[in-house]
Design a protein around this nucleic acid. Structure first.
Lengths: 153, 153
DNA sequence: TCAGCAATGTAACACTATATCATTTTGGCA
DNA sequence: TGCCAAAATGATATAGTGTTACATTGCTGA
């Protein structure tokens, strides 16, 4: 049983299509604004705050977007597994694989802010098991590692 | 080699003494305000925000304490391993065992907010190893699990 | 005593997040 | 098509979290 898991990344348009399908599949609409938000989020090369996304979408569309709309959409994306939230950065990243459910481990670079993730189901499972062993019922593990990325040493 | 680790908890005054020793041992002063902040923090039965602590200390001392002083002190506590920060709650907890270094796994109850932690060095080590295997240099793992505590089902 | 440094205070500000209610858009249906 | 109801978004305000810059206080050691 494979516990480590590797993906080949769908590029730009394919990514958006996968996101759209996941949102529609969750019984939600894929509106223009949602497409804009997803596009802006996935264009960042590192986690973006809700306000970063708001600004990017506002610039791209030429009209002022409300920050709370962006929050709502990002929450929806997280619920649909189309985006993920990095708790220790108060920021969001697009998920290249909405169809795959994982307890991701995020590697957050202290220096440049770039964040990658690994899907190690074995580790995730052992975290859930350790929690469950105490009687706690795990719902959403938050697994993030602060440190230095390869480029920043 | 024991990977699971259990503690018997030092109660109130012993706890404060352990904290004081750890702070002094880190080459920092143990001032009245720091003692107040630690006392307030450890009196909470769940993670407290910096502003919760500010309010508690203000009430306890009868004078208005500056929030940024509390932030500074909490940062110092975290650096001295006298307190720990729960990233997904933007909150802090007193550490009963400043002398023991662990990558704690926090179990955060969605319903009541109470938060416990487990020190499973095996799991923590495997998280660090998974990160290091990608070339990332782990410094501070953030291991938190959102879910339901025993009491909340 | 006085100089210097660490700690804390004061104030202002930036960022993150949510609440409330109004308005617009969408989708279903007669 | 035209209307209704529901969903989505906007506008605005406000709460909560965190930082910056500089002033003041108080301790400590020459």
């Amino acid at each position: 049983m494979a516990t480590l898991h590797h993906h080949t990344l769908p590029a730009g348009p394919g990514l958006a299509a996968a996101a759209r399908d996941a949102v529609l599949g969750a019984g939600e609409q894929w509106t223009d604004l949602r497409a804009q938000v997803f596009g802006a989020l996935s264009a960042f090369d590192r986690p973006a705050s809700a306000y970063d996304v708001t600004e990017a979408v506002s610039k791209a569309t030429g009209r002022r977007i409300a920050a709370n709309s962006v929050y709502r959409i990002l929450d929806l994306f997280v619920a649909s597994n189309v985006a993920m939230r990095i708790e220790s950065s108060n920021a969001y990243v697009a998920n290249a694989h909405p169809a795959c459910l994982h307890d991701c481990i995020f590697l957050v670079c202290d220096a440049c802010g770039k964040t990658t993730h690994i899907d190690d189901d074995g580790v995730a499972k052992s975290v859930r098991a350790a929690a469950a062993a105490t009687g706690f019922r795990p719902i959403r593990p938050v697994l993030e590692v602060q440190g230095r990325c390869v480029d920043c040493n």
